[in-house]
Design a protein around this nucleic acid. Sequence first.
DNA 1: AGACCCAGGTTTTTT
DNA 2: ACCTGGGTCT
Length: 671
Amino acid sequence: MSSFLSTLNEPQRCAVAATGGPVLVLAGAGSGKTRVITRRIAHLIASKCAAPEQVLAVTFTNKAAEEMRARVAELVGATAAQTITISTFHAYCLRVLRRDIEHLGYRKNFTIYTESDARALLRRVTDELGERRDRFSPALFHSAISLRKNAGETPESLKKRPLRTATEEKYETRLGDVYERYQSALRAANSLDFDDLLLHTLHLWRAHPEALARARGQFQYIMVDEYQDTNRLQYELLTLLSAEHRNLCVVGDDDQSIYGWRGAQARNILDFEKDYPEATIITLEQNYRSTTTILDAANAVIQKNTARRPKKLWSALGKGRALDWFVVADEEAEAREATSWLQHVMRRTGAGYGDFAVLYRSNIQSRPFELAFRQAGIPYVVIGGQDFFERAEVKDIISYLKVMANPRDEAALLRIVNMPRRGIGDGLLHQAHDLCRAERCSVGKALWLLLERGAISGRSAHGVRAFLRLLTTYRKRFREPGAPLRATTQELIGAIHYADEIDRMSKSREQAMMRLENVELVLQAIEQYENEFVRPSLSGFLDQTHLDSNSAGDSKQRDTGAAARLMTIHSAKGLEFPFVFIVGLEDGLLPHEQSAKEGNLEEERRLFYVALTRGRRHVSLFECLSRTRNGRERPCKTSRFLAEIPETLVKKHIRAAPEMMAHSAPKSPRA
DNA sequence: AGACCCAGGTTTTTT
DNA sequence: ACCTGGGTCT
């Protein structure tokens, strides 16, 4: 028996020791799930069930993958840990496709489309199909297509599906057409969106047995974290990959499934033993994180859900303090109350700023807290919000690099073609697009053809010529073996006089400075990448930035030492804090009114459950009697979920003026 | 091509 | 209230 079985509780030990066949670990919040996965990997290796390179561990975020590798390294050593495949679904599929995508008719230098690239492409596709722009935005179409893709639907399968109503038929037909055109536009651009990474890997494996055989042969053991968040595609991939040995170990918690709106099916975890009747099933119910009071509250809430595996978390950490429930006038009062309460708790317990997290349903709620914390001198970090790589100047530079790596990348090319201004406008680009379709070529090639034919007039011709020359020159530079990425990029930025362009675009000196600094951060990210990898390449850098946007640029993530965290409940999943403030506990916000309309109440309840179970020592709850939404001040009702916590577990503090207590009471007439 | 103005729509977002 | 996107004017 390997030493990796010690210091585990009984069910944890069972999960680690079950080395033959499928295993389902139902791991309640805070029950030592990561500990089980890492120990299991170490045990598999130590007991010679598998060599390190025969183990695959799949996570949902890069952060989780990194953490897991670090913890496994503590157990098996850094060398062995390096050879274990610990990866997100998307990163693993990317690796497969970089090798084998030519079977599917793509070129190996394909680029990855971000959300905004996909929207730009969809804008053109829907325009060409004559979609009325005001009805459905590209973003809506993209999320609809994304959901279909993640359910494993292709344009063809979508069109074959029987439809019930005329409206449904009309919508699905339109969607099918858009999906079809979008997909062929992606193909023409030699580009894949995030979902394609999974979808095409599945197609590859299905159509090319030798590719599947290679992947199957590599891994003897497969482990999946957060299994409740897997979607249909991921389920299919895992099924194919593990079909021969069936050594599939999945870990998750159906009660923490909060990504249904992105296509995750908690059914995968609920139905596991239907697919694997011989599965070992283990439930982890001992919680090592929270007080009994917090768990009792969380259990009471989640028990109202019907579709779930029954389990009841318990803890040996003691009863702890009752939850404090603050009723305040509005969101500003909420932030003020949270501020003084935080300071009070710090004085009473000696806790530091970093021990606190404010959790909310939507990002907009962070504002009042940022203001109040700043005023009170409380250091804080807002987690999430706008992505570094989505900022205009960063996207510009990245788009230049994408066009260097993949000349067909349409979204990238359209973004840079007139940045800086070269007199290349919509009319010309329309012409180019028509030519693309006729000649089945890329936009860049079409511009070149138009120039050859003398179809471009004076000033524009000059711009197009300069642009094409620039592309040729730098493509060659980047292709030279051993070309320094950072230096070459820096030169490219100089060649297009990007600093001048920033000055011209910026409204103020400060804004220009900030944008220049962001460009500098991109260069630093490239340099860091170059130093980190033995064989750095342009497409390698691009892959990393697209799949792991936190890996570079985001300095916020690092120096977060002694600061309170502000984040959505979604981004708090997997984390824990000694003191948790859950704010905005009103009907309409939590549960969110859109979700309530769509009948997703149980997922909203799970969201509240996730929020509660983040707390180690204490959880505080905040509710406003009125809140400004969409520019209008509206009266609020208590979140229906708050009432599901037994009264004995909470202490209620009314901090609103009495006249506010009648829900619809108007403010004083003088106001 | 680019500046300016009005109308519409406002969740969550691992990759 | 605020941002995005589209339409219009120069």
